[in-house]
Amino acid sequence: MSDGRALLEVEGLRRVFDVSKPWLNRVIEGHRQQFLHAVDDVSFAIPAGRTFALVGESGSGKSTIARIIVGLIAPSAGTIRFDGADIARIKNPSEMRQIRRRFQMIFQDPYASLNPRMRVADIIAEPIRAFGLLGDTAAVQHRVGELLALVRLDPRDGLKYPHEFSGGQRQRVAIARALAGNPQFLVCDEPTSALDVSVQAQILNLMRDLQEQFGLTYLFISHNLAVVRHMASEVGVLYLGRLVEVATTHELFSAPRHPYTRMLLDAVPDLAMTGRVRTPVQGEIPSPIDRPQGCHFHPRCDVAKDRCRTEAPAARSIGAATVRCHTPLGA
């Protein structure tokens, strides 16, 4: 399934939001311009057929990266290459449509991601019609029935409206819509965080089955480490818009290199009841508007040195992992 070739490559991605007050208020009240650094120099590559997970706390920039990749937000800097083609350089609309068809997105909140005034069949048919994949109505209807069966819903459910479904069923509808254009790459922005725990596993297993069946590549965004461990082949840990550690799932969970990764892992509840003492997460993520100097993590880090307070660490490789830390663990 995976041939090692990167389907999606992100390099030096950066996004700065101007959150200043209006010009007139700044002049009168004497405020300076304020910028929110949501994504700061993020690079990663996802091989075809694999799942790359981005984890991090709220405000770490996970969702911004997802939205930049699918084109909802323009990046401030950096390049995104999909199957070797730089997305930002595609000017031809028909070529852009071809690229868009090949990557789709699954959203976090299945209660908001389906238009409440449209029938489910029309919601799923929309990408098919938009990309002009099938001409006649009968073929579109047949395909919609197929997609509903694929996500294990009854094809007759297509006549219903979204409010007639449960959260898990709605997320299945959203997955069916995402698959309607036969994509290769799916951006999944916390696809199960709005669902009941009992339903989460069903949706995750469905996504894994679909990945196997169609050789899909996932960018999987989550704050739930147990989910990430279940889904991902590689994990990137985000902290205040910077990717502090990238490693294979096995490597990351068995030997975390960055103090932040270790802190996150230590805080996970111990369901196996091994008697391990949990260390709660220390402190809170600072504001992305007013970020700490040097390494962003130093105010919460227990191994921080003077150098960490002044100098931002560059990415370096330790074993198979890439870490941004002056004092990595196990080095």
Partner: peptide
């Protein structure tokens, strides 16, 4: 800003 509108934008409508 609701996700169903974003979903429509991702399709490229």
């Amino acid at each position: 800003n609701k996700e169903y509108v974003q979903a429509a934008r991702v399709i490229g409508l």
